[in-house]
Design a protein around this nucleic acid. Structure first.
Lengths: 166, 166
DNA sequence: AGCCCATTCTTGAAACTTCAACAAACACTG
DNA sequence: CAGTGTTTGTTGAAGTTTCAAGAATGGGCT
């Protein structure tokens, strides 16, 4: 925490407007998608994202830790989420054969079905909120910008900090 | 919900990459700021945003509904949030004189103090995550894009749908 | 083997959010 | 002014997330 603010570089007017726009857009969109999916798929957006990840993984399964890393959530959060998804019958767990600590989260047929049925509506919502409103240039720009931001926040992904190179 | 997916316009490769980058960036950033503020200001990012709003309002007070609208959260969520902020002594409520249903949320001196002390660290975090990493062009672009997205999701702000003009 | 530390995943409690339902005050209409 | 519908704000319960702690296995080192 910074204690002296003499040298704080506050946001100027345009930066403030941009930051506020960011906050508003992200909040509104997350809310929108959450409601859309809660209505159509009976689950929040984050959970839906987990099913998507699983559906794209080989054999529709993934180690908990990897799933958490891909989805950008904590393992704890994932544990609870999978527990809930399991209750609904959309996911099941299986011990990992190679590592006795490990668990695989597996997308069930029921889970795949829900995903398949709600995917069109979800894509439509995303398209309508973002891609339909942006020029090709803006879409490209958005991609670049978000990659930059994400990169900067990634706690040193794979090989980024190699102790033997310091 | 869409039931037939024959005519669904799925996201193409680049759109998918962009969308995923968006999800990752927004998640990582929200997480990052939440932790930063939880550590330095003992409150989540959304709550901090409420204090900011109040601090900028005339007489450091605002009607609940207006505060909710500005902060892009539901009134219910705001009720709970203010209850909590009140417990901490950062906000207090007062009846609205003109409308007996109404409540004003008021930033206390203690609230202002917390805000003042944690603001530099927060701005630094935002700057480091976003503005320090983007070119001037990209910042401008980000602002425009986010405004477009937010606008599209705004449930018909002021005068947007005037029944007598239909 | 034995020791040590890292990794994997889970758990329970506390904090936060959502949703539906509600009371009270307002505002319009006849 | 009584009737009707709307707006304001709250509430409790259920669902979700965070945080700190902990059980179990893995992997390296001597």
């Amino acid at each position: 925490m910074k204690t002296h603010d003499e040298d704080t570089r506050w946001l100027n007017d345009e930066e403030q407007r941009t930051w506020r726009a960011y906050l508003h857009a992200t909040m509104l969109l997350e809310d929108h998608l959450d409601r859309q999916l809660q209505r159509d798929a009976k689950m929040p957006h984050v959970y839906y994202g987990l099913l998507v990840q699983l559906s794209q993984a080989p054999r529709r399964r993934m180690r908990m830790t990897e799933l958490a890393r891909n989805a950008k959530i904590t393992r704890s959060r994932l544990s609870h989420a999978v527990a809930r998804l399991e209750q609904h019958g959309w996911v099941r767990r299986e011990d990992c054969p190679s590592d006795k600590r490990g668990q695989n989260a597996i997308l069930t047929d029921a889970g795949y079905k829900v995903l398949k049925e709600s995917a069109p509506g979800h894509v439509a919502a995303v398209r309508q909120a973002i891609f339909d409103r942006l020029s090709t240039e803006q879409q490209k720009s958005l991609g670049e910008i978000m990659r930059i931001i994400a990169e900067g926040l990634q706690p040193n992904e794979a090989g980024a900090d190699l102790p033997w190179l310091r």
